[in-house]
């Protein structure tokens, strides 16, 4: 569904992504983990078109989207839930959702209403707060709104950038439950996370990004058990793996 070949991107002279290649198959949850500054957000921004690739290909459903403007990409079925949620604080919850369905204009009002109902069913809290300004929501509610907004355009691939940032552990659990539910409803999810453990627990596969390169990839369960991953990203002391030899 999504194939990335030798992708390079960065800011000005700073090269952040150095030859990243990866793929996401339909119906998978794929997670990208890595330390701060590894290029995770840059990767998602480049796929979403907010940042232009300097080299390489991004193939979404067999179409190279690397040169496409950001606002054209959601209509293809690939949508980003940006880092820090980026909801429209001065707009009501419902208006935020309707904006998410901006690309549905050709499908008419009825489709828009149906999608609205669908998101309200998925996130009942948004229904309760539909006329409230989005800026007055709690962090967890804002994250749900950002996800609902992204789902409004009926994407086939939904990319999430650090959905757990700044949320209480219980809320994080809710968010991850929704991610699994989205997958069960047939969506494909590309998940970038600091919280490597939580991400690997829900994901099917994972990529480990380090200073702009994929250094490790595999089944999520295997990555969870991987010694290097444990040491670097899961917060286990290297001593735990010390086998007694000098």
């Amino acid at each position: 569904m999504l194939k990335i070949l030798n992708l390079q991107a960065g800011y000005g002279n700073l090269k952040v992504l150095k030859n990243v290649s990866m793929h996401v198959a339909r119906g998978e949850i794929v997670t990208i983990i890595g330390a701060n500054g590894a290029g995770k957000t840059t990767l998602l921004s480049t796929i979403a078109g907010l940042l232009k690739a300097t080299a390489g290909e991004i193939r979404f459903e067999d179409r190279n989207i690397a040169a496409l403007a950001a606002q054209k990409i959601p209509a293809l079925g690939c949508v980003l839930v940006p880092e820090g949620r980026q909801i429209f604080a001065d707009l009501s919850v419902e208006e935020n959702l309707i904006l998410g369905g901006h690309v549905l204009r050709r499908n008419g009002r009825r489709e828009l209403a149906r999608q609205l109902d669908h998101q309200y069913a998925l996130f009942p809290i948004l229904n309760e707060r539909r006329h409230q300004f989005a800026g007055t929501l709690s962090g967890g509610e804002q994250q749900m709104l950002a996800m609902g907004r992204a789902l409004m355009s009926k994407p086939s691939l939904i990319m999430m950038d650090e959905p757990s940032t700044g949320l209480a552990p219980l809320i994080v659990q809710d968010i991850f439950n929704v991610i699994v539910r989205m997958r069960d409803e047939g969506k494909t999810v590309l998940l970038v996370e600091q919280n490597a453990k939580a991400a690997l627990q829900v994901a099917d596969r994972g990529y480990v990004l380090e200073t702009g390169k994929v250094v490790l990839q595999g089944r999520a369960r295997e990555l969870l058990e991987d010694v290097e991953v444990k040491r670097a990203y899961l917060g286990k002391d290297y001593g735990d793996f010390y086998d007694g030899r000098e």
Binding site: V79, P82, F88, L91, E95, L99, M152, S153
Partner: peptide
């Protein structure tokens, strides 16, 4: 609605299309 979304955050507006 689109205009007000631009006022809120241009990047987020683009990422919803």
């Amino acid at each position: 609605r689109a205009l007000r979304s631009i006022h809120g955050s241009e990047e987020a507006a683009e990422s919803v299309g």
